[in-house]
Design a protein around this nucleic acid. Sequence first.
RNA 1: UAAGUAGAAUAAAUGAUCGCGGCUGCACAGACGAAAGGGUGCAGGUGAGGAAAGUCCGGGCUUCACAGGGCAGGAUGCCGGAUAACGUCCGGUGGAGGCGACUCCAAGGCCAGUGCAACAGAAAAGAAACCGCAGAACUGCCGCAGGCAGUACUGUAAGGGUGGAAUGGCAGUGUAAGAGACUACCGCUGGGCUGGUAACAGAACAGGCUGUGUAAACCCCAUCCGAAGCAAGACCAAGUAGAAAGCAAUAGAUUUGCCCGAUCUGCUUUCAGGUAGGUCGCUUGAAAUUGCCGGUAACGGUAAUUCUAGAUAGAUGAUCAUUCACGACAUAACCCGGCUUAUCGUUCUGCUUAGUUU
Length: 119
Amino acid sequence: MVFSESLKKNSDFQNVYRKGKSYANKYLVMYVLENNTNRNRLGISASKKVGNSVVRHRFARLVRESYRLHENIFNSGLDIVVVARKSAAFVGYAEIESALLHLSKLHHIIKIYFYDEEN
RNA sequence: UAAGUAGAAUAAAUGAUCGCGGCUGCACAGACGAAAGGGUGCAGGUGAGGAAAGUCCGGGCUUCACAGGGCAGGAUGCCGGAUAACGUCCGGUGGAGGCGACUCCAAGGCCAGUGCAACAGAAAAGAAACCGCAGAACUGCCGCAGGCAGUACUGUAAGGGUGGAAUGGCAGUGUAAGAGACUACCGCUGGGCUGGUAACAGAACAGGCUGUGUAAACCCCAUCCGAAGCAAGACCAAGUAGAAAGCAAUAGAUUUGCCCGAUCUGCUUUCAGGUAGGUCGCUUGAAAUUGCCGGUAACGGUAAUUCUAGAUAGAUGAUCAUUCACGACAUAACCCGGCUUAUCGUUCUGCUUAGUUU
């Protein structure tokens, strides 16, 4: 990913959970915090409650793919954490993608005219 | 053809575009970092499973411990073989089930000791009489002989009933009634014989033979087992903190260059240590494929060929098109050998039983 890297350390995750703002919809919960750099950092989390290893890996790939394909419309300088909810275990790419964009819009972290154009 | 039984293979396919982790080659930068190490782009090639799962056994590997022996604890438990090893596998023996192919079995020892056996039943262990059967005695009634009823006593394990289990089974002889008391057959026990490496099997002989079950009850016997795990462990190594030597003591460092003032006790080198970070361990192996040889088989030997993920918050996804049976279970994390459990389906092979046709 050109403008982004992944969020790795547990302490970074805890930081975002504590200080960041969150919105949620049917499939996802999204936490956002400014990180004072010019790059975005994306973290993906899926607990064992969501499903087995196959389900959790698939969820992470779908979120990463959705983010990658829309990377250029996101604002930069953000730590973003996406958490799976239980209902996300059984849905496909289209649902994850629209859920991600919906939450991004609520956070006002994407360039609106791109979002409007797609809808 | 149908039903069954044993085993094996496979785990949607093809193409296009975008994207990800190793590897190899080339190019670029040498702008990141104290160092160790790393970055960017392009091309090529490569990238999860039959169970990768559960983490239930066994082994390699690593570190620690260890003269030798014993106790405790755990595991295994018919016999022989295979193997690095096993609780696994193969071939047998015995038992159970099935018409059969075939399947299943924690299958050592209650003549070392201790314990338990609820309910029912007379009785479930140092020892048995509830009913029944039989005997002689006494009492009563009827009476020619004798019979019937009751009472306590004695004998009796045939029969009834209880139970998961009741003192070998069944038939006969025998007897007052009975009883291995005696007899035949079966079973059991014993020491030999024959066959087999053995478990065990077989035929005969001898003994009238013994009151049971339970060891997934304690236990006994035999065999095996040191502990922890790749977040093991090895190496490099900021910072912090430690030691030694040297320099400085009207000194040095910081405070923008100088002065004053203020604050602090330092600076350099070496050694030890090993946190953050990095590298290795990390995939060439009890390896895979094919052929031949040995073995009933598990498996072993041998020759040729091949190199087949190696991430470190953790790489396989998305979109489009076509086809079909419309896609189950489930994602490597040091590596092997097993076991167990989950699973949409498809295909093939051997065998069995029943039916039909020739």
